[in-house]
C-alpha cells in the first residue's frame, strides 16, 4: 500500500523536471502536509482533554505525536524521495531507543517481583512509618 502511494507521489512529481535534478515534490504536497500537521496538533490537545486514565492518555499522546513525526519525516525530510537507507537508519535508531525504554521500564515495573519489600510502594509506606518512629522515640 505504502509502496504504491510512494510511487504515485514520485511519479506525479517526476514528470515536471528531467532526471538531472533531485526529486522535488510539488508545492501542493507541502501545504497539504502543513495543514494536516495543524489538524493533528489540535487532535493532540483534544486527546488530552478526553480525560482518559493516565496510562492510555500517555499512549494516545505518543501515538498522535508519532503520526505527526512520521509525516514530517516522510515529506519534509524527503524520506519519500531519498534512497531507502536513510529510512533504515531512522527506523533502527527508533528501534534502539524503544529497546532502551522498554527494558528499563520493565525493570522498574517488576521490582517487587520476588520480595515485596523491594518494591517502591513498600519503601514509601514503611519509610513514612520509620520516620515517624524516629521522631516519636528519641533517646
Amino acid at each position: 500500500m505504502f509502496a504504491k502511494f510512494r510511487k504515485e507521489v514520485l511519479q506525479r512529481s517526476a514528470d515536471d523536471h528531467s532526471s538531472g535534478e533531485p526529486h522535488v515534490l510539488p508545492l501542493k504536497v507541502y501545504f497539504i502536509v502543513f495543514a494536516s500537521l495543524m489538524v493533528l496538533t489540535v487532535v493532540t490537545v483534544g486527546v488530552s482533554l478526553l480525560g482518559l486514565p493516565p496510562v492510555p492518555s500517555i499512549i494516545a499522546a505518543i501515538l498522535v505525536a508519532a503520526v505527526k513525526a512520521t509525516i514530517v519525516a516522510v515529506f519534509f525530510m524527503h524520506l519519500i524521495a531519498e534512497d531507502k537507507f536513510y529510512s533504515v537508519i531512522l527506523v533502527s535508531t527508533v528501534f534502539f531507543m524503544l529497546l532502551f525504554f522498554g527494558l528499563t521500564l520493565l525493570d522498574m515495573d517488576s521490582r517487587g517481583f520476588k520480595n515485596p519489600e523491594e518494591s517502591l510502594e513498600y519503601w514509601q509506606q514503611f519509610s513514612h512509618e520509620k520516620a515517624l518512629t524516629e521522631e516519636a522515640a528519641p533517646e
Binding site: 534502539f96 529497546l99 527494558l103 520493565l106 525493570d107 522498574m108 515495573d109 517488576s110 521490582r111 517487587g112 517481583f113 520476588k114 523491594e118
Partner: peptide, 18 residues
Amino acid sequence: GFLVWGHHMFVSGQSEFI
C-alpha cells in the same frame, strides 16, 4: 550487544525478573 547491559546489574537491586 545492545540487549545485554543488565548483566552488570544482577545484584544491584534490579528486579530478578529482568
